[in-house]
Design a binder for these strands. Sequence first.
DNA 1: ATCCCGAGGG
DNA 2: CCCTCTGGAT
Length: 215
Amino acid sequence: MSADAAAGFIRALAQATPDPQTELLYTDPYSLLVAVVLSAQTTDAAVNRATPALFAAAPDPAAMVALGEAGVAAHIRTIGLWQAKARNVVALSRLLLERHGGAVPETREALEALPGVGRKTANVVLNVAFGAETMAVDTHIFRIGNRTGLAPGRTPREVEDRLVKRCPPALLRSAHHWLILHGRYVCKARLPECWRCAARAFCNYRDKVLVAPAR
DNA sequence: ATCCCGAGGG
DNA sequence: CCCTCTGGAT
C-alpha cells in the first residue's frame, strides 16, 4: 500500500468513527494505568465491572499497597489472569511510591520497567494520559496492518513503526483507537465485514477472504 | 474449540 | 521463537 493510500485508509476510519475516546472509562494516569494492566486478554466489560469498586477502595498507589494482593484479588477475581494481575498491580503501585513519588512516570522506559507493563500498555498510557503521539499495537491492529497491507510487519513493533511513519501526524494520537475499534467490529479476525468497511477503497482483502478464509 | 484492546519468561 | 496465565465471548 502506498503512503497516500495508507493516509486515505486512516482518514476513512476517522470519518466513520465520530468520537475516538468515548468508551474509555478512565483518563487520569493512575486509574488508566491500572485499568489497562487489568485489561490484558479480557473484555472491557469485565474490567469496567470490577474497577469502580477497586478504585473506590484504593484510589491511589498508597491505598493499593495497603489493600494488598489478597484485597486486590478479591475485587478482580472475575477478570482473566487475576492472580498475576493482583500481584502486578500491588508491586507496580509500590514502585510508583518508591521511584516516582506516587505519580505515574511519563517516559516509556520508566513505564515499561513496571511489572505488568509492556510496550502496548505504555503506549496507551503515554497517548491517552500524557498526550503523546504513540500507536499502541494490539492483536487487532497487528492483524489489520498485515491483512490490509496498511502496515505489514513480522512483529508488533514493526507494525507500530510503519504505522507511525504512514499515519498523518495530525491523526496519530487518535488513530490507534480508530484502528482498534475497526478491528473489533469490522475487520474482525474470524468474519471480517468487508462490505461495510469504511476503508474498503484502500484494501483488497475482501477478494481473498471470500475465496479462502484467513488462517 | 479458539481467540482475546498482553506480559513475562525460557 | 515458544509457552503459560485466566475468564469470557463466539
